[in-house]
Design a protein around this nucleic acid. Structure first.
Lengths: 141, 141
DNA sequence: TAGAAACCTTGGAGCCGCTACAGTGTCAAA
DNA sequence: TTTGACACTGTAGCGGCTCCAAGGTTTCTA
């Protein structure tokens, strides 16, 4: 399988596949006489695994560690759930701050009363007032 | 005001302040005889403004555009609310995908039944099965 | 048989928003 | 006088790609 076929089969960009190889996530494939990469089914599966983990927003370092467990299934894999827990915690922390962010933006947005002259723009006033340390709709309290 | 005083007053790292100057977000301050930067109150306000926008997760490019409106308040600022709307849309899109992500991770986590032998690890099985295109707890349907 | 188009290779730079150096200079207190 | 804290510039690194240049190979079409 040439690199483009692998790319099409997995939906992963050709450059990204080469990047994964350089980063040590994908094993170097066999080469044809002309130097072209020649992938086997195992590569396709490994790439799918990587993309699945990435869809879960796991850092490539974590993906690499998971691949280590996959490669040596005899090894005790007690860290696998820790790794998933960590990822879950990261996602939840991010969710929390994003929700707060949404609220702040909504309030800021509500300050726009239709006047679009800079001197009377509620949004700009709001943002500038923050610079004066006044209480603002975005960061109340 | 020396750079460290500005940093303390705003909670912004010294290196970050210099970075903002290099990026054209902060105007170059006066220099003392020894070459040290000498900031005025206007710099403090501008830096607060920038950090407030960054707290709303706006890209620096957008912050720069807002600063343009602040600098020239006569200019019609109809784009300001568009800019905020864009940011809100970005945040909401991200929220949506993060919520989905949390669900997927929770389901994946539930696959861990206490067995930590790699060969029988529910989480690894799940992730590997995805590589085979089987339906998986993470990406159902 | 020529040439164009589509593929492949490598290496390096660019993106964002910092952060962390290295190497050097300046200043104030003990 | 020496120590320590500050300042300066310039460059490199982070993650996870993405894009580009400059070249080689293969396949299709005229």
């Amino acid at each position: 399988m040439q690199i483009k076929e692998l790319a099409l089969a997995t939906g992963v960009d050709v450059e990204t596949i080469r990047y994964y190889e350089k980063q040590g996530l994908m094993p170097a494939p066999a080469r044809r006489d002309n130097g072209y990469r020649d992938y086997a089914v195992a590569h396709l599966e490994r790439l799918s695994f990587i993309r699945h983990c990435r869809a879960l927003d796991m850092p490539l370092g974590d993906v690499n560690r998971l691949l280590g467990f996959v490669d040596k299934p005899d090894r005790n894999c007690g860290d696998v759930d820790l790794l998933v827990d960590d990822q879950l915690a990261r996602v939840r922390a991010r969710l929390k701050s994003m929700r707060a962010l949404e609220k702040q933006l909504l309030r800021l947005r509500a300050r726009c009363l239709g006047s679009h002259e800079g001197a009377h723009c509620g949004i700009l006033e709001e943002l500038v007032s923050a610079a004066h340390g006044e209480s603002c709709a975005c960061h109340p309290g």
